[in-house]
């Protein structure tokens, strides 16, 4: 009997099991070699930063006047020492803690705040939209670097102030993308159908809007992380971010720049870290974008 059924309805048997959206995204992302390599590099950076105290590294704060600016490959200091004789490897790994934190957290904050603002503006429309989006437009009048420097400069140096200023810098672009995506979804019939079933605005947003707008906003936000990394390092380089003697890649680049004629390779190391990290974040974001593109 079952056999007859199967013959009568071959389609029924062959019908693919409904698959979750995210399992498909992960499967496609796993097939992308470049994105996977970048993911591994970033995972290594984050893991080494998190577990730095347990890696058996030298003290990143303890200098030595006699062991200053040792070249790369010196015994005991594989990546040499900086201008105060502190171990470069330890400082680079410990530096990753601050740099990655200041480089990623503003995007995370901006993602939540910007999405909330953009979804509200896009869904409600009318006057609410005009007010939110015009305020956002004001921020676009300034280049992001200038804005970050201006806000940081006004607030003063320090980690918290860097986080605040970078978050402010990244809220407007996220809001704009969120608003655009939400307005598009808002005009679709399934939102009207949901409203016609008597659901309130918050229910419609929670059930029908967020799931359909979050992934493009998320992909856009990941593309901002590399810019944010560079801006965070830039603020420290200019002396309005992290203060010495904290290890931070941007700040290290600044303090080592005097040594560029003595040992250019050594002086370039923090820059290499910034470059590699932001490149990997960018490529990973690209991979994510294509993995999330379901249709065709």
């Amino acid at each position: 009997m079952a056999q007859v059924e199967a013959e009568l309805h071959p389609q029924a048997e062959a019908a693919p099991k409904p698959q979750g959206y995210w399992s498909g995204v992960i499967r496609r992302l796993a097939g992308d070699k470049v994105a996977m390599a970048c993911l591994i590099v970033i995972a290594l950076l984050i893991l080494s930063a998190v577990f730095a105290p347990w890696l058996g590294l030298a003290d990143p704060y303890r200098g030595s006047m006699i062991a200053r600016l040792k070249p790369i490959g010196t015994e005991g200091h594989i990546l040499g020492t900086d201008e105060q004789g502190r171990d470069m490897l330890a400082r680079l790994i410990y530096g990753g803690r601050l740099t990655l934190f200041i480089g990623l957290m503003p995007v995370v904050f901006a993602f939540f705040i910007g999405s909330a603002l953009g979804i509200a503006a896009g869904y409600v429309g009318g006057m609410t939209n005009t007010i939110i989006m015009r305020v956002v437009d004001v921020f676009f009048a300034f280049p992001s670097v200038l804005l970050a420097i201006a806000i940081s400069g006004a607030l003063g140096a320090g980690i918290t102030n860097s986080l605040v200023s970078l978050t402010i810098v990244f809220i407007p672009p996220v809001t704009r993308v969120a608003e655009a995506v939400t307005s598009g979804v808002r005009s679709l019939d399934y939102i009207d159908a949901a409203r016609a079933s008597g659901a309130g605005a918050l229910t419609v947003i929670r059930v029908h809007v967020i799931g359909n707008v979050l992934s493009p906003i998320f992909v856009y936000a990941t593309s901002l992380t590399s810019v944010c990394m560079i801006l965070a390092a830039g603020l420290s380089f200019l002396g309005i971010g992290v203060r010495p003697p904290e290890p931070e890649w941007g700040l290290m680049l600044n303090t080592l720049r005097a040594a560029i004629y003595v040992d250019p390779w050594l002086a370039a190391l923090p820059g290499v870290m910034i470059f590699a990290t932001s490149l990997c974040l960018n490529l990973l974001s690209d991979g994510l974008r294509s993995a999330m593109n379901v249709r065709d």
């Binding site: 679709l188 399934y190 009207d192 949901a194 029908h208 799931g211 359909n212």
Partner: peptide
């Protein structure tokens, strides 16, 4: 509605 595709949430 007329558009059978647009009137269903694609993620539901």
């Amino acid at each position: 509605f007329q558009d059978s595709y647009a009137s269903l949430n694609p993620r539901m």
